[in-house]
Design a protein around this nucleic acid. Structure first.
Length: 596
DNA sequence: TTAGGGTTAG
């Protein structure tokens, strides 16, 4: 038999070029046909090229068919198939390919193991990931830059931050590059460990072998600042973003929009958003969510209209943002229309969160019967249902509807989960209705059952340092504690001149939404934490600067009134971020128009 | 020479 001619021994450069450029199944299949027609011998390399091309266009059944028919398979063939499955969102199959590969006697290399780690990252499965890690140790490549980086990411996505850091710390200095630093920063940011991310970023700048921060690192650090509400550092990082020339990167811009919004600076969010040239769905959603938190409902609706006009289709997150915006602006009927038309108008089936938002919206508007009707109608289960009934319970309490509160309270208690939030609201509902004995009974039952709630706290950032205040405890103000108390006394006096009838600086019977955590005070609480943070802020934040207070619970009506009065008396602006939204106090009134 | 790592909205 004659030796094959040169042209049939391997893929010609032209065919390789065609395969590389092919991004759709039709052109890959056409090139495949050309190869068969030309009688090109199917060498291992040519099969691998074809396999990769099928994987690149996501045609995994064709890829598998080809793979199964191959006479020889090397580590590249196996890894290509794994990578194809991972990219197609079929990570479990990718991991099973690794097992089959080892069973067939082909040894994994660094590329195989980094691909496998990446598949486990997508699954957020630390158990499987640990097995890949062990294989990498056995193969002696666990300290390879790319394998280590993939492992850092894998542990982080699975929530095992300490394991990520151990891999990072185990890397030799020369193996650390911008990607491994970026991966570690992202792990902290994604796990809401903002301060650790900020700390690591500082280490990079002082001892990072001269590595310049890139847009990956910057977006993570900005998002880290958002997660811990560190405005001043966020602004510094924004400066670095501009200096380093990443101001036009959309991902970084989205992180900035989100950071400013979460730090109480909606105007800055809007400025950053307005500089994005052709915003995609994520920047639009991000600014809509920001507008929602500040009660700018009409603005959110305008942004939705603008994005649709520009051909950017909203998704479920966008529409949830729009509904929240309606909810926080009192546009109840508009919000309900969205719920009922999102499927026909945008092709999006409402999720439990959309129903919860609508129920919450009706509840806060006092339309409690409608809210109950919708809550029963919505097919919501599990944790989502708990959230939904909790929000309804809270609305019943606000509108002093003890009859309905009891009904909602029963639904909440059906969940054998952490019901602290619901019980607190129930107790508050009793307290609001003047039934202090029932309120105290709920607290006592919580104590007996060992249920604890997060203590209410508020914090304020001064010169980059967060000061955290708990109800009734002014000690965080340090040497200035007495001054804070004196200032609050003085303000209370001035408020009384304006008709204020409550009490500021001593224990008062009021909403028990905030307890100092010892569980023994029942509904008798001292001055709320946001008032203390405000008092401290008035002393230390220079006149002319907005005082920004953060709170981990919802602000109560008393404190809301107090903040309004004080903003008029001292002629200063305050921004309060509570659990749900932002309040911007100015000249005696609040941006929420008392609707929240 | 065909296969590998990090970012943004809820």
């Amino acid at each position: 038999m004659a030796a094959p001619s040169f042209s049939t021994t391997a893929l010609t450069p032209v065919l390789i070029h065609l395969l590389r450029g092919a991004s759709d199944l039709a052109s890959v299949a056409a090139t495949h046909a050309k190869i068969l027609k030309a009688g090109v011998a199917s060498t291992l390399a040519s099969s691998n090229h074809l396999l990769a091309a099928y994987c690149r266009c996501g045609a995994m059944s064709r890829a598998r068919e080809l793979f199964d028919g191959m006479r020889d398979r090397d580590v590249v063939s196996w890894t290509t198939l794994m990578s194809g499955y991972t990219a197609s969102g079929r990570s479990r199959e990718a991991v099973s390919v690794l097992r089959a590969m080892e069973f067939s006697g082909v040894q994994p290399n660094v590329v195989t193991l980094s691909t496998a780690a990446s598949a486990c990252a997508r699954l957020a499965d630390a158990g499987l990931g640990r097995q890949v890690h062990a294989r990498a140790e056995v193969a002696g490549c666990a300290r390879d830059t790319i394998v280590s980086t993939a492992l850092i990411d894998m542990y982080g996505k699975a929530g095992r931050v300490d394991d990520s850091r151990a891999v990072f710390d185990g890397m030799a200095a020369p193996a650390m590059n911008a990607v491994s630093w970026g991966a570690m920063l992202a792990v902290y940011a994604q796990n809401a460990l903002g301060n650790e991310a900020i700390q690591l970023f500082a280490e990079l700048r002082t001892s990072g072998n001269g590595l310049a921060p890139n847009h990956f690192m910057l977006s993570s650090v900005v998002s880290a600042c958002a997660s811990v509400v560190r405005l001043s550092i966020g602004k510094c990082v924004h400066g670095a973003v501009l200096r380093l020339g990443h101001g036009n990167n959309e991902v970084v811009a989205v992180a900035l929009v989100d950071m400013y919004s979460k730090c109480g600076c909606y105007e800055y969010s809007r400025k950053v958003f307005d500089r994005i040239e052709q915003p995609s769905i994520i920047p639009y959603t991000s600014i809509i969510v920001a507008a929602a938190k500040y009660g700018h409902g009409k603005c959110a609706l305008a942004l939705l209209g603008e994005m649709v006009d520009r051909g950017v289709q909203p998704n479920d997150v966008t529409l949830l943002g729009v509904m929240h915006a309606c909810s926080h602006s009192g546009l109840v009927d508009t919000g309900l229309q969205f719920l009922h038309s999102m499927q026909s108008k945008y092709g999006i089936v409402p999720c439990p969160s959309h129903y919860t938002c609508a129920v919450d919206m009706l509840g806060r508007a006092g339309r409690l019967e409608e809210a109950f009707g919708l809550a029963k109608e919505a097919q919501v289960e599990g944790n989502e249902a708990l959230l939904l009934w909790n929000s309804l319970l809270s609305a019943c309490r606000t509108h002093k509807r003890l009859d309905l509160a009891t009904l909602a309270g029963q639904r909440v208690s059906e969940f054998n989960q952490d019901v602290a939030g619901g019980l607190v609201v129930m107790s508050n509902a009793y307290a609001s209705a003047g039934q202090t004995e029932n309120a105290a009974a709920v607290w006592s039952s919580m104590r007996q059952r060992g249920i604890q709630k997060d203590p209410g706290c508020s914090w304020i950032e001064v010169k980059d340092i967060p000061y955290v205040f708990y109800a009734g405890a002014v000690s965080c103000a340090g040497a200035r504690a007495d001054e804070v108390l004196m200032l609050l006394d003085e303000l209370e006096y001035k408020m009384r001149e304006k008709g204020y009838r409550g009490r500021l600086g001593s224990a008062r019977v009021s909403d028990a939404h905030e307890d100092d955590g010892d569980g023994g005070k029942g509904v008798m609480v001292g001055v709320h934490s946001e008032i203390l943070a405000l008092g401290f802020g008035l002393l230390v934040v220079p006149k002319g600067m907005t005082i920004r207070v953060m709170k981990n619970l919802r602000m109560c009506c008393d404190c809301h009134e107090t903040f309004k009065l004080i903003s008029g008396i001292v002629e200063r602006e305050f921004v309060v971020r509570d659990l749900n939204r932002f309040h911007h106090f100015k000249t005696g009134s609040c941006s929420c128009n008392d609707y929240w």
